[in-house]
């Protein structure tokens, strides 16, 4: 069994994030999304020294607030052949840890309504459905652009 390690995303390997996301996620992100991958919390997950998963998250400071109230997971992806090995879970745990060290008590993310298995996966980790946001992915040309906002209290 190969080991799972997390490591930083750097200027030199940030293209890998794009490769993983485009391979796994139904959504397409603009270039600026990847340019910003060095800000916030982002990590690669290595399986036997090969990068196979990645998380990109950031702190959310709502309007009229001075301090962040939640950690928002912008993208989380693990290459298909490397699933069911606890890699995704490890990445979420990393986000939780980051939330705690930033004194933030909530993690949020969006799941596409047409991917119930993804929703279930997050539910197994303790996330709960907050609301359905109609048309959230309307710019992504998905056949059903609604998203479910999920949240986890920590």
């Amino acid at each position: 069994m190969s080991s799972i390690e997390l490591d930083d995303i750097t200027v030199n390997n940030q293209h890998v994030l794009k490769v993983i996301n485009t391979n796994v996620l139904p959504t397409v992100y603009p270039e600026e999304f990847y340019k910003g991958s060095l800000n916030g919390f982002s990590k690669f997950a290595y399986y036997g020294e090969v990068p196979v998963g990645a998380i990109k998250a950031k702190l959310i400071v709502p309007q009229h607030h001075k301090v962040p109230t939640s950690v928002y997971i912008e993208s989380l992806a693990v290459l298909e052949p490397y699933r069911h090995k606890g890699i995704g879970k490890k990445l979420v745990e990393y986000a939780i840890e980051q939330a705690k060290t930033s004194y933030v008590h909530e993690l949020t993310l969006h799941v596409w309504v047409k991917q119930p298995e993804v929703k279930q996966w997050y539910e197994r980790l303790g996330f709960e459905e907050k609301e359905v946001i109609p048309g959230y992915y309307s710019q992504q040309k998905l056949d059903q652009p609604d998203a479910i906002l999920m949240s986890l209290k920590v």
Partner: peptide
Amino acid sequence: KAVEHTPTL
């Protein structure tokens, strides 16, 4: 096929 399987290598 290999590249499709693990496109990060």
